[in-house]
């Protein structure tokens, strides 16, 4: 594992911690999309099925379990916590997730490495992760004002993806015969999804202003 990959994973972990702390400390999930959080739970469950049949490293196993547990903890807060669930913008968070899930699943059936249940589900999780942030970005666009923590959460999620891109470039030049097209193409799409957000985030940061999205 190279430094870019580790930095990417740590940024991913930090983004989740920031979101959990925001929810716990402010007892509010205003501006957070439950649809996106549920999509991430689907992504982790379908991708980490290999926890049951293969062992890669202790690091790998522990991180997978952390991602699964934190995803369900966030969902629990947003759905079940007495105070937090009342702050959820249900009326604004209306993205039709089936428009993401169905095409990703069909694509996973058509383009994969192996026609087995676990491999198709793993491929599905790669495709779905690429677009899972969309309900969150749409919610942000609707509510316009972005609070600092939600902004930082999304910025870190985007940074994690950018670091993974660098990790792949590094691996390409250091590992003989290393290539993984499905992951590369999806990962590039996923990183591009954040470009617009990055632009406004950096602009707000440079002007020392609160982040706002155009209407």
């Amino acid at each position: 594992m190279n430094i870019f990959r580790l930095a990417g994973d740590m940024t991913h972990l930090l983004s989740i911690i920031v979101l959990l702390l925001k929810i716990q400390a402010t007892k509010s999930c205003a501006g957070v999309s439950l649809k996106t959080q549920e999509l991430y739970a689907v992504v982790f469950v379908t991708r980490y099925l290999d926890l049951f049949y293969s062992f890669i490293s202790l690091y790998n196993t522990v991180m997978k379990i952390i991602f699964l547990l934190t995803a369900f903890t966030i969902i629990w807060y947003m759905r079940k916590h007495k105070v937090v669930c009342q702050t959820y913008d249900k009326e604004q968070d209306t993205f039709r997730v089936l428009f993401l899930i169905v095409p990703c699943f069909v694509l996973a059936l058509l383009v994969n490495h192996e026609m087995s249940v676990t491999e198709v589900l793993w491929t599905f999780s790669i495709y779905l992760e690429a677009v899972a942030i969309l309900p969150q970005l749409v919610l942000l666009q609707r509510t316009k004002n972005v609070d600092n923590l939600t902004g930082n959460y999304i910025f870190m999620l985007g940074s994690y993806r950018a670091l993974y891109l660098v990790n792949w470039v590094y691996r390409y030049f250091t590992e003989l015969g290393y290539r993984q097209w499905i992951v590369w193409v999806s990962g590039t799409v996923q990183t591009c999804v954040y470009l617009d957000f990055f632009y406004y985030y950096v602009q707000a940061w440079r002007n020392n202003e609160r982040m706002k999205l155009p209407g």
Partner: peptide
């Protein structure tokens, strides 16, 4: 081995 490589990433 390719598949194993891919599954190593989170």
């Amino acid at each position: 081995e390719e598949a194993e490589d891919e599954h190593d990433e989170l």
